[in-house]
Design a protein around this nucleic acid. Sequence first.
DNA 1: AAAAATCTTGACCAATCGGTCAAGATATAA
DNA 2: TTATATCTTGACCGATTGGTCAAGATTTTT
Lengths: 214, 214
Amino acid sequence: MGTQDVSGKNGQKTAIREENERAILEAAEEVFAEYGFSGATTSRIARRAGIPKANLHYYFATKEALYRRVIDNIFTVWLEAASSLNESDHPRQALAAYIQAKMDLSRSRPLGSKVWANEIIQGAPVIQDYLENTLREWTASREAMIRRWVDEGKIAPVNPRYLLYMIWATTQHYADFGHQIATLNDGRALTDAQWEEAKKNVTEIILRGIGISA
Amino acid sequence: MGTQDVSGKNGQKTAIREENERAILEAAEEVFAEYGFSGATTSRIARRAGIPKANLHYYFATKEALYRRVIDNIFTVWLEAASSLNESDHPRQALAAYIQAKMDLSRSRPLGSKVWANEIIQGAPVIQDYLENTLREWTASREAMIRRWVDEGKIAPVNPRYLLYMIWATTQHYADFGHQIATLNDGRALTDAQWEEAKKNVTEIILRGIGISA
DNA sequence: AAAAATCTTGACCAATCGGTCAAGATATAA
DNA sequence: TTATATCTTGACCGATTGGTCAAGATTTTT
């Protein structure tokens, strides 16, 4: 993830730079999530961050450089959640933990999910290398793990790939389509209780769906 | 869906208008799917339709008017697929048919799904009234139907709403995230056989997940 | 206190945006 | 054939785009 060095002589960012970059990245995630890369404008991001546009371009030379930093952050968070799907547990615990982690991520960081969705819809012009390397390797290793579960008779015979897609699709839907879900919920976002119920339903249907009785 | 009347004295569009509007709408769906409403430009749409921009604006006065026509068409197709989830069948047949219809739609009209996804991510500035009326009523009636199945013990006790979301999310994922799926498939779109396998897996996991043994 | 590094910002740039217009080309109706 | 309606398009409009720049303000280092 090549980011140019902007640190001073002592090799660290100033407090001012730290704070301003943080504010810009926060505003940028909002705007990129809502409008996509092409639809987002640097002036809109600057306005939302509360600084002049020229100041934004002092910290991030181009819109694309800013976008890459946003994407990098999102991918890091995605990988953290991904690590919860690990070998050590039994299928039920492992998958339940992963679904929970992904659902929690959709609630705590819906903007990241939306930026990701926009990027994929556009054909992943920026993160194609992540898809072809990090994501591909992660997916292959998890597919192998799930296939082992199938071979050992621990879960029903499903194609691991399509199970993973179902988990991704369902959990991310609660972030990407949050507005539609809220509209169908009398215009209000899901309450904590509703969210828990959604998590429970999603987990139960998927686990039962692969032959693990809840 | 208020569209202004542009028909001649005898009350019908000319063949020229028919053909040109069709070409423009086709190009517009592509561009809106890829770039969203804000990111799409009328000149890009015109270029893809093979006509000068001024000619596009002769047929569609504004970008928003064109966008509304595209959205209208997509919603019509969506409703057709939705009608396959009907009362007459048993839960297994009804849900299997609906999942199949939605999967087929993701394959035959992926662009429409992407435009829809973009619109929702942006907060549905254009189709909010569809969500609040047509979609809300459709969803309520189907929720009631599924709840009856639960009460009659035909399927496991799930909240119908979250079951519907899972079906929408999973099936539409194959359109909206088609690029990611292709990348994880060695860069090639799913073959017919793979698509059938995906459909089979999705249907089986969901049906088994709500207690209907395949 | 002086020097150096860092940060701020209004003014500006060429390119592109959505959209208009008028003049001419083409098709249809009388 | 003539008249009318429809269609086509280059040129153009003010506004906004991503990005630059220079001059000054502020902070940090010496």
